[in-house]
């Protein structure tokens, strides 16, 4: 696995955790329908909303788009906003990650207007692209500088970052947990 291979990974997911979660995940259903009406996500065609709250630690409430999906995700038993880039984006992995982080922060800031709160100090980052980014040591080694560069583009060059590997050796996609010391509020970063 080389830097070149991993840079071709098309799909990335970024999750920011809620510090004040929705009282009921279903509260997000009308919010996401409103986002479709208002074309709330820039440069993205939003299509529909789906409810998967019946699935244990599942995708929760899904806002389906053409190039990206947004989830009020219930994974890890910790609700959060999961931004998933699935297609329709030029550039390499670093560019995709930077964009994903920025857009996820923007979406969190928008959801804070509806009473939720999110923290920017911890970000779960997945690369669900087993062809270009298998979940192995080589790929993770190649991934770290890419993620670091993307994080610095969003959090600033001086930010204190810790990048840890998650779920090594399983069938999970390549996953990292990014921790940012004293990260500003999402509204500041968005």
């Amino acid at each position: 696995m080389t830097q070149t291979d991993i840079s071709r990974a098309e799909r990335v997911q970024v999750k920011l955790f809620a510090s004040k979660a929705a009282a009921d995940p279903h509260d997000l259903v009308p919010v996401f329908h409103r986002w479709i009406r208002e074309a709330k996500v820039p440069d993205e065609l939003l299509i529909d909303v789906t409810d998967y709250t019946h699935v244990w630690r599942g995708p929760g409430i899904l806002l389906v788009g053409h190039g990206v999906d947004l989830y009020y995700d219930l994974g890890e038993d910790r609700p959060g906003l999961l931004f998933a880039r699935k297609r329709a984006f030029e550039g390499d992995l670093e560019t995709r990650l930077t964009d994903a982080l920025k857009r996820a922060l923007r979406a969190c800031a928008d959801l804070e207007e509806d009473g939720l709160e999110f923290s920017a100090t911890e970000v779960l980052v997945r690369v669900p692209d087993r062809l270009h980014a298998p979940n192995d040591d080589d790929a993770f080694t190649a991934f770290v500088p890419v993620l670091e560069a993307a994080a610095r583009a969003v959090y600033g060059a001086e930010a204190v970052l810790v990048i840890e590997r998650e779920e090594a050796g399983t069938r999970q996609p390549l996953t990292a947990r990014l921790r940012v010391e004293d990260a500003p509020a999402v509204r500041t970063l968005a």
Binding site: R11, T50, G58, P59, D69, K86, R87, R171, P173
Partner: peptide
């Protein structure tokens, strides 16, 4: 794996013993 990479992370079992993945390009 496919559900996670290309669909919405859900595998749906149908009434005819199929598996369906939704929102696929």
């Amino acid at each position: 794996d496919l559900a996670e990479e290309y669909s919405d992370r859900i595998l749906h079992v149908t009434t005819r013993q199929d598996i369906q993945l939704h929102f696929v390009h």
